[in-house]
Design a protein around this nucleic acid. Structure first.
Length: 220
DNA sequence: TTTTAGATCGTCT
DNA sequence: GACGATCTAAAAT
């Protein structure tokens, strides 16, 4: 069941947890579908969050973080990768999608990943588990690029949207942790518990078993 | 197994 | 001009 506009009307932290267990769907030009279940997210708050791209106000790049909730914010990082976020209700806030559990179109995902890499021999042995277990890996697998997905509203286009499982109440054990790769933002904001993932799910990008602690259960 | 180095360019100062 | 919300390949342990 495809998520609608008012399903996204919530704040950034609520949304980061809400998105866990939802299915990201990408329809390609040849009408094939790629699907993956969201298993890891991070909140980037508006206004006060030093680690957020919106911390210094609105710019051309971060504009989608200020657009209607449910808008895709896709940006390039390190000159060669992309990250995919979904804006939430508050201006300047968005949820980074960090990992997916691949569900459909795995062969196409493999192809996308293989195309991007130099040493194709080594990648012949790429495992399914490594297709989408990172924010830029999932963008490569799903063909999410600044040029084709940035600023899309996930409720009114046929390239990228979200679905929930109908008649399926999965009990999710959610873990919180500090966000990844933002230490330069300073201790205070680098250490906030704004990363969320499904406890025990093997597709989470990077685990920290010793620090894993359940914070909420259950959720639908 | 863990650590380090390098790739590469749009964005903002 | 400096720097990444990262990933891979190579090197070190």
């Amino acid at each position: 069941m495809r998520l609608k506009s008012n399903d996204f009307d919530m704040n950034c932290i609520e949304m980061a947890k809400f998105l866990l267990g939802k299915v990201l769907v990408r329809q390609l030009e040849d009408n094939t579908f790629l699907r993956g279940k969201i298993v890891e997210t991070e909140s980037y708050l508006g206004g006060i969050d030093k680690a957020s791209h919106s911390f210094n106000g609105r710019t051309p790049r971060n504009a989608p973080m200020f657009m209607k909730e449910g808008t895709a914010y896709v940006y390039m990082t390190y000159g060669m990768y992309h990250c995919f976020n979904i804006s939430s209700r508050e201006p300047g806030a968005a949820v980074l999608i960090r990992a997916l559990e691949p569900l459909e179109g795995l062969d196409i995902m493999h192809k996308h990943r293989l195309n991007k890499v130099k040493n194709k021999q080594a990648f012949k042995s790429l495992k399914d588990i490594d297709l989408c277990n990172g924010p830029s890996k999932l963008c490569i697998s799903m063909d999410i690029h600044k040029d084709n997905c940035n600023k899309l509203n996930l409720c009114d286009n046929d390239l990228l949207w979200l679905e929930s499982f109908p008649n399926f109440n999965e009990t999710l054990n959610i873990v919180t942790a500090k966000r990844i790769g933002i230490d330069s933002a300073g201790e205070e904001w680098a250490n906030k518990p704004l990363r969320f993932y499904i406890f025990g799910n093997p597709h989470v990008s990077k685990r920290n078993r010793t620090a894993e602690k359940l914070i909420e259960l259950p959720t639908t």
